[in-house]
Structures are given as C-alpha cells and as structure tokens.
C-alpha cells in the first residue's frame, strides 16, 4: 500500500464519525457556506464596503494606495504613461529597466532611451537584478484592498515584478475592479480552462515589521510600487 493510500485510508476511517457543525451551541443561523460561496454577492456583503461607480472606486483605490505607500498617478490617456516614465527616469536616475512585450509596456517605453532587459523569452537573473525598475502590465486593480492582480502571463513572468527595486504597473480604467470577489471571478473567466503557474495579488511595496514591529519598506521585493492608471 502506498503512503497516499494509507493517508487517505486513515482520513476515511476518521471521518466515519461525524463532527458537529461549526459555531457549536452558539451557532448563528447562517445558510450553509457551500451555497453561499457559489454566488459571489454574499461575501461582498461581509467584506469592507466598496462604493458604486468608477469615481467612488477610484477614490477608494487612491486612499488605499496612500495608506499602503503605493504611488498612484492617474493620467488622461495611455500616451501619458510616457511622460510619467520619463519623469521617473529623471527623478530616480534610472539607467536600465526590465520589461515584457505587452502592448501598453512597449508603447510606454519606446522613446525612453534606456537599455531594456526583456523577460519574455528568458533572461539572466543578474541582468534583471541590476535593472532599476521592472515595468509590467496587470490583469486588474482592486479598489477594496488597493491591490494589483498579476499573473506570469500578464506581467512578464514571476520575477520581473519582484526582483528590481521599483515595480511600475501600467493599467487602464476598465481594469479597476470593485473587490476581491470580482477579481476572483475575473481570474476564473479569463484563465478557468488553463491557469498560469503564478497568480498574485500585489498590495503595496514589499515590507516587513519583523524588527520591533517597525514598518520598513523594501524587505526583499521592490521598495517602490508605482501604478500608472490611464483614464482612457
């Protein structure tokens, strides 16, 4: 008998005695979760509230970004990405950037005049590590939590968005979602038949509180997270 069969056997034997439902004697009358979670509207009524409409979502996303120390810049059109990147190049003294061949990224960095480490078909770790910023697209922004949803397909692999000291995200207005249930619905709709090997919610720049619970940014990942949002 394999260990797999032994473990599954022990589990089945253990489960032959039923356990009481959660909440015990003080259980509140809530419908069974299995049916609840099927429709994404119910967790929505428990989680932190998100307003209706783009303006309210943007306001919440702005508030969350500021709390998280994410830099959010809203530009009128995707053409505005170029100006913002030039500004960052100057203010932060960028010498080299990492990027992937997404439509938004290619357009935004075309005239930046910096050497680029493209990650799409493999790269040297040392080279990417020496880049001053990693510029990626994303799948969505989440107003509720101030998060950026990325995958290995939408953001140039696993490392581009975490290895360089600055992660710059390019996003469009239509990508700003209300909350986590909506983001999970998007993941299923977009990738449900073939998931990427890596999916991540990025919520602010890398941080740690491991020394006396004092917040320090840039623990292992990027010290800076900039989100450029085009209202187009």
């Amino acid at each position: 008998m394999t260990e797999r069969e032994k473990i599954l056997g022990r589990i089945r034997e253990a489960l032959s005695v039923a356990a009481p439902r959660p909440g015990g004697a003080h259980a509140e009358s809530t419908p069974a979760a299995a049916s609840v979670m099927a429709q994404s509207s119910t967790p929505r009524s428990w989680l932190p509230k998100v307003g209706e409409g783009y303006a309210e979502r943007l306001e919440l996303f702005r508030q969350q970004s500021s709390d998280l120390k994410t830099e959010l810049r809203v530009v009128a059109s995707t053409g505005g990405f170029r100006d913002e990147l030039r500004r960052l190049r100057e203010s932060d003294g960028w010498k080299k950037i990492g990027a992937h061949a997404g439509t938004l990224v290619k357009g935004a960095i075309a005239d930046l005049g910096l050497p680029v480490c493209w990650t799409d078909s493999g790269y040297k770790v040392e080279e990417l590590e020496n880049c001053d910023a990693g510029i990626t697209e994303c799948d969505a922004l989440v107003a509720q939590t101030g998060s950026v949803l990325i995958t290995s397909r939408s953001a140039g692999g696993r490392a581009l968005s975490v290895l360089p000291p600055h992660h710059v995200v390019l996003a469009r207005r239509s990508q700003l979602l209300a909350d986590l249930p909506e983001a999970f619905a998007l993941i299923r709709q977009r990738y449900g038949t073939d998931y990427p090997s890596f999916i991540s919610f990025v919520t602010g720049p890398s941080r740690t509180g491991d020394i006396e619970r004092i917040l320090v940014l840039g623990a292992h990942g990027p010290r800076k997270l900039t989100i450029l949002l085009s209202e187009e």
Partner: peptide, 18 residues
C-alpha cells in the same frame, strides 16, 4: 487589509512562461 503578496502557484513553469 491584505498582506503585500498573496500568490498562487499551480505547477512548474508552463510553456510560454519566461
């Protein structure tokens, strides 16, 4: 509200992933 990175891994590198 959410920690900085919440990442899901579903296997080794897929075809087409860098």
């Amino acid at each position: 509200g959410l920690t900085c990175y919440n990442s899901f891994y579903g296997g080794p590198r897929r075809p087409g992933e860098p």
